[in-house]
């Protein structure tokens, strides 16, 4: 009998595994911007429809030269900071109550479901009647938008804390407050931080709505005004500012997550 022939077993794995490609995004966006610029310079697209990246950059530069860039960004940041903080603190308070006490849950869940979907822009006239056209109504618009998702994230986060950890705390006679502070709060933190990502974006989205209320400065007011005046280069410049702000806030949140949730 002949020696059986030896063959190598064919490799069938591979694929479906994603590996990081550093710099790919940067190159892609650079190419996209270059193509965009070229399309307008070459006259394929009318600048009336889409201003060139250079025009948007110029608009930003002029804004910086005029000294209003800082005013727009500063006032918007102040509104976001105040509105987001108020909405978050209130949302965490209500969310924690809903996560801990059955009564709060029984009342809170239908209340949140009923009030969350109300478009905040529709409430602007009411907010103006209650709070005027100064900063309070603008801050309240953002705070309202932030409040509900925070409350939901907080009570879902608490629901996600393993019950056995709470039982463990009780078995060691930990005081109620210590269980809350040392077990429930850190256990709910991943869910709460995920909620922060959403509410930070909501705050940015609502900035435009908030600055509809008699704002002279602010990125949202700037975008609104550019839209009304059909200044498309400035409109896009404002959008770029908003994106940069979103990116910056996202980066800060990522750092915060890495710092607070290093144990995961």
């Amino acid at each position: 009998m002949a020696e059986p022939q030896m063959r190598e077993v064919a490799f069938r794995g591979g694929g479906f595994v994603l590996s990081p490609r550093r710099g790919a995004a940067a190159v892609f966006f650079a190419l996209l911007l270059a193509l965009w610029e070229l399309a307008i310079r070459a006259g394929w697209i009318s600048p009336l429809f889409l201003p060139a990246p250079s025009a948007v950059t110029t608009a930003l530069w002029e804004l910086a030269l005029a000294g209003t860039l800082g005013l727009h960004v500063g006032q918007s940041l102040a509104r976001i900071a105040a509105g987001w903080s108020i909405g978050t603190i209130a949302g965490l308070g209500v969310g924690f109550a809903m996560g801990i006490w059955s009564m709060s849950r029984a009342i809170g869940v239908p209340a949140v479901s009923a009030l969350f979907p109300i478009p905040k822009i529709a409430l602007l006239p009411l907010l103006i009647l209650w709070l005027g056209i100064g900063e309070p109504s603008k801050i309240a618009t953002i705070a309202l938008g932030v409040f509900f998702p925070t409350a939901i994230a907080a009570y879902s986060g608490i629901d996600g804390v393993p019950r056995n950890l709470i039982r463990m705390g009780q078995s060691f006679n930990l005081p109620w407050l210590a269980i809350l502070r040392k077990i429930v709060l850190p256990g709910a933190l991943p869910g709460i931080l995920a909620g922060f990502r959403i509410t930070a974006s909501i705050a940015l989205i609502l900035l435009v709505a908030a600055e509809m209320i008699g704002a002279q400065y602010g990125i949202g007011a700037f975008i609104l005004s550019a839209g009304n005046l059909m200044q498309t280069d400035q409109l896009l410049a404002g959008v770029v500012l908003l994106s940069v702000l979103g990116l910056a806030i996202g980066t800060v949140l990522s750092r915060l997550e890495r710092w607070l949730l290093g144990w995961r």
């Binding site: 602007l124 008699g214 609104l224």
Partner: peptide, 19 residues
């Protein structure tokens, strides 16, 4: 000039004595 981006908001500000 208080820019309120719409008649409902303008009328609310007027009724509330904000302007």
């Amino acid at each position: 000039m208080r820019q309120l981006n719409g008649l409902p908001a303008m009328q609310a500000a007027f009724k509330g004595g904000q302007v």
